[in-house]
Simulated assay, not measured.
Amino acid sequence: RTRDLWRMKSGRIWSSMFAPIALSWSLTAQSCSKRVWQSRLSLSQPQAFITAPARFGMTGMKPPISLRRNRRLNHMQVRCLNRLLFEPEEVVPSSQSSCLLYLAKSDKRVTHIKKILKLENGQSLRIGVVDAGKEEDAVLEWQDDGSLKLQISQSAEQLCAPYTADKIPRIDLLIALPRPPNLGDFLGIAAQMGVANVIFCNANKVQQDYFGSHLLRPPMSKMRQALKEGLEQAGETYLPKVHVAKRLKYFLEEQLDQICPDTIRMVGHPQKSWLPPLPPMRDVQVPPNGRILVGVGPEAGWQDPYELELLGEHGFQGISLGPRTYRTEVALISLLALANERLEMADLQEKGRR
């Protein structure tokens, strides 16, 4: 009995000592979680509102965005679809000035429209056709069986008209094949950033079993889906063309000029102290309406000097993002963003001369 009384007394002592600490930890965790939600809200688009859990003390409208759990990162991330894409064969002509789109109840796009966007009859939706046109106001009409009909105020010929040469993106990408688990993310990034041709090539530091990825196997439907998700995020419709080069030297000598003719070719490489100074991309001369081919190496970098000299023999000039060594996805996004900016600067300079 004495031992039991001592345990009860000691338990109360420990509780009184650590209760304030536990309470402060709980309040700190809640405040941090609230700040995370506020930061995500500030980084999202102006039209997007995120409804946070009630325990964070935040309220808001139900958002036209989806929250999905990333299994690898184990946290919630925001995924916003800015345009739903359709294949050309899904477009049904209805008259000379309009056409229709039908979606079955089991279609994933119907689930997204119904549960995430929460659109009702008469409301409009932005849609697009792969490698063709766009429509900003496709009117919804829900059917009794749960399917969906979209009415479009364009003819099927206008909506499915293929891209003209002046509207095709002017950036091509030569990238050493990444690890298979990350390949889908790289495809989505390339589609979002406006790449016309994606060339996955071999390199000395690329493992050969990477070419056995399921995304690279026929019929490549999963690769196409990854590209379409990137386009839906960017609100565009041009689907990048994907090429696979298992032999780098043969590809550079025999096929590169056919796929990417008349391009300004650049390859990113860290600026090391023993290398001659490499210029930034803004200092590279780009003609008006020119095209840029960006080369990105594997995680361990291009083989120096063999692969760098091989690229240099085929017109690639080295550019630098600074002395730091970046992960491939960071270097990819940075180089593609700078390439888009450089093309815009070249176009503005040409307009200023006129």
Rank of each mutant, 00 (worst) to 15 (best):
M220L: 10
R217C: 14
P63R: 10
R170S: 13
V92T: 09
S221M: 09
I113Q: 02
A337H: 07
C160K: 03
R7C: 12
G188E: 14
Q30P: 03
S155D: 14
P46G: 04
Q143T: 04
K134T: 08
Q30E: 13
P63V: 03
D185S: 14
Y163V: 01
S334E: 11
W6F: 12
L84Q: 07
K167G: 04
R354H: 14
Q45M: 12
V286H: 02
H314K: 11
D145V: 03
H269N: 08
D145M: 07
Q154H: 13
E141I: 02
A19G: 12
L73H: 12
F251W: 15
S98V: 01
R224H: 13
T2P: 05
L293N: 01
N197F: 10
A190I: 01
R291I: 03
G295K: 00
C32V: 10
L159H: 02
E254T: 09
H214L: 09
R179V: 04
Q192E: 10
S31E: 14
L67P: 06
K105D: 14
Y250Q: 11
E229I: 11
V92L: 09
V130N: 05
K9A: 15
R1T: 08
R55K: 07
P288L: 04
S153L: 12
G235S: 06
A161F: 08
C32W: 09
I189Y: 08
K62L: 13
D137A: 08
L27C: 07
I116E: 15
G322Q: 07
V206N: 03
S44T: 14
V110E: 14
L43K: 13
K149C: 15
A29Y: 06
R217M: 14
Q285D: 12
K167Q: 14
Y250C: 03
R265H: 04
V330T: 15
S95H: 04
I116R: 09
L150P: 05
C260Y: 06
V139T: 13
M61T: 10
R282C: 10
D166L: 03
L310E: 01
L73M: 10
V91M: 05
A337Y: 07
V242Y: 05
E309R: 02
G128W: 11
I127F: 08
R126S: 15
V206F: 05
R35L: 12
N182P: 02
N204I: 07
R79G: 09
L174S: 00
Q158A: 13
D347G: 02
K249R: 08
Q285C: 06
Q143K: 11
L215N: 03
A339T: 01
K351S: 14
L67N: 08
R291Q: 15
L239R: 03
S94H: 11
A226M: 09
I264D: 02
S10V: 13
H75K: 14
I127L: 08
Q96N: 12
R126G: 10
L321T: 02
P280D: 07
E136P: 02
I50T: 06
I189Q: 13
T2G: 11
N340A: 03
F18W: 15
A339L: 02
V284P: 04
L173H: 00
L338I: 01
L125M: 10
Q255T: 13
A234P: 11
Q77M: 12
L252D: 01
Y250D: 11
L140T: 02
P180W: 06
M193P: 03
R1P: 08
Y306L: 06
